[in-house]
Simulated assay, not measured.
Amino acid sequence: MSSAALPSLRDTIARHGLDARKSLGQHFLLDEALCRRIATLAGELDGRQVLEVGPGPGGLTRALLASPAEAVTAVELDRRAVAALAELEAAYPGRLRVIEADALTIDPASLLPAPRKIIANLPYNVATPLLVGWLRGAAALEGMALMFQQEVAERICAAPDTEAYGRLAVLAQWRCRCTLLLRLPPGAFSPPPKVWSAVVGFVPHPEDPGEALFRAMERLTAAAFGQRRKMLRGALKSLGDAEGLLAAAGIEGQRRAETLDIAEFDRLARVLLARQAS
């Protein structure tokens, strides 16, 4: 089957009984123009290996295959969608690989050769844990363009001293330059979700903190924002000597987590890791 002979997305959905399932966080993007636009938001694709998670009937997948990307690997948990995507595999031999798996178990660096990018309309119910896992291995990625619920996207890109600023913002901005690239209304999807969605672009920072420092930052941000109304000297007690930790990082104990910028969290995480190692 050639790409020109592919059935429409709605026909594909009907033939494979691919109704969106709430349990899988599915909301399909069927607008071809929007799919093409999203495919461009991660920047240059020429020669890149692209990982897509949760492709569903393949709207964004088709746009990625029409791009200069070297190849696309689509990870899908829903067997109905895997069957539907087989038509795309036949139309683009050697350029599309469909893997039936839980994306939370997938390591992009071991699955795809470099240079790698991730472009995906993420299932709502696993978007945050997927992102945190990819941030942990961000050094192996060239970039990402990921769609979230708009509220989550705004939390990722939030600035210090704002209500949305929290653990997700610190982890994301510590590892990547994060930019809110596109907002989409509920009507862009089938079925329409109850909320707006947004695409965030991620460009990894050159420095790789390593696994141990990333774990320290996870512990630190979990403690700091787990009791965000408390002063840091109280919120960080679970980490040990909170007063000593803060003093070593040059941060006043009466401050609250949302007032710290990324550089201050980095200092705290490095001090915490050094104390763990001693």
Rank of each mutant, 00 (worst) to 15 (best):
Q254C: 12
A223W: 03
D241L: 06
A242F: 00
R219A: 15
A223S: 15
R229N: 00
D241T: 05
E243Q: 12
A216W: 01
K230C: 05
I251C: 06
R215N: 14
A247N: 08
R255E: 06
R256K: 10
I251F: 03
A222Y: 05
M217H: 09
L246M: 11
A248H: 09
L220R: 00
L213G: 04
R233M: 14
R229F: 00
L239Y: 06
R215T: 15
G244E: 11
L239V: 11
R229D: 00
L213N: 05
R256E: 13
R233K: 15
A222V: 14
L232F: 04
R215K: 11
Q227C: 10
G226F: 07
E218N: 14
A216Q: 01
G244V: 00
Q254D: 13
E218K: 14
S238Y: 01
R219T: 13
A222C: 10
A223G: 09
L220F: 00
A223T: 08
Q227S: 13
T221H: 08
G253Q: 04
L239M: 10
R229W: 00
R233T: 13
A242N: 05
A242D: 13
E243D: 15
F225I: 00
L236K: 05
L246K: 07
R228C: 02
S238D: 03
E252R: 13
A216K: 01
R229E: 02
A247P: 05
G226E: 09
R219L: 15
A222P: 05
G226Q: 11
G244N: 11
L236H: 02
L220G: 11
A248E: 15
A222S: 11
G253H: 00
